[in-house]
Amino acid sequence: MASNEAVVRIRNLVKRYGELVAVDHLSLDIAPGEVFGLLGPNGSGKTTTINCILQLLSYDHGEIELFGQPMRPTSYQLKRRIGVVPQEVAVFDELTVRENVDSFCALYVRDRARRRELVDAAIDFVGLQKFEDFRPKKLSGGLLRRLNIACGIAHRPELIIMDEPTVAVDPQSRESILSGIERLNAEGTTVIYTSHYMEEVERLCSRIMIMDHGRSVASGTADELKGMIGTGEKVSVEVGEMDEATLERVRSLPHVRSAEVDAGMLRVQCASGAHNLADVLGVLAENGLSYGRVLSEPPTLNDVFLEITGRALRDEA
């Protein structure tokens, strides 16, 4: 990707906190119109990277360009083109929904008439028309999240950075938020999206980067990432009872990583292979076992994430 096309271009970004290297020689390019997913366990360097992009943090080494221009703390023209939806709801408790959206919009747009249009549009976009005169304390968690988004997008930024915008919201609100992001993207907005909800990332993101220990450990489309790991589908077969010898035959199949029977269901985790389901069902048929429901689940992004970053708990000292 040519650098003049990138909305975000990072080269060899290094950020240290004393001995700790929070971001370790990170490079990435984000093209216009992409929804770029930034994944990683807690402490992997996602938020630090975003704060460096936004110049909220200085960094030890590297280059950051937005829209082809170096990003500096005083790059106000560039900041005008960026919108941020932080992970925590960051609004004025004493202002109403409309006043909040207007206050944040006013940080980028001076013209009052133009601002009124933008605020109306932002409130419409997140569906808060009925709550315009409500103060944040009167809003539910989902409505608050939507207000948080409206405050970040009201000035019509070309690049929106969303840091876990759907934390602690109900499924309806989440669906509303996700479809809103899809609409923004359809209008041409570039989005950087971080989340721990893999299904959201898989649904939204055209490209994904997985970070760990401050480094990019994998990047590509969701399918590309799934192809990078050896994990294949999960096969579940309703078998009733099953003898140990048959179970051992299933386990000995070439692409089977594990197999176990739990409450009458045979659950088989396969490595990537072309005929895993047929092979498992073949073993059952050869041993005269009848079966009921059969379910084959392809590998998910969550499987990819866990395989790449490991299953050990994070956030521990």
């Binding site: 936004l54 909220l56 106000y76 023209q77 900041k79 005008r80 960026i82 941020v84 932080p86 960051a90 944040f104 940080l107 980028y108 405050c151 970040g152």
Partner: peptide, 8 residues
């Protein structure tokens, strides 16, 4: 932090 990103 959010207001620190303002274009002013």
């Amino acid at each position: 932090a959010r207001q620190a990103l303002a274009a002013v």
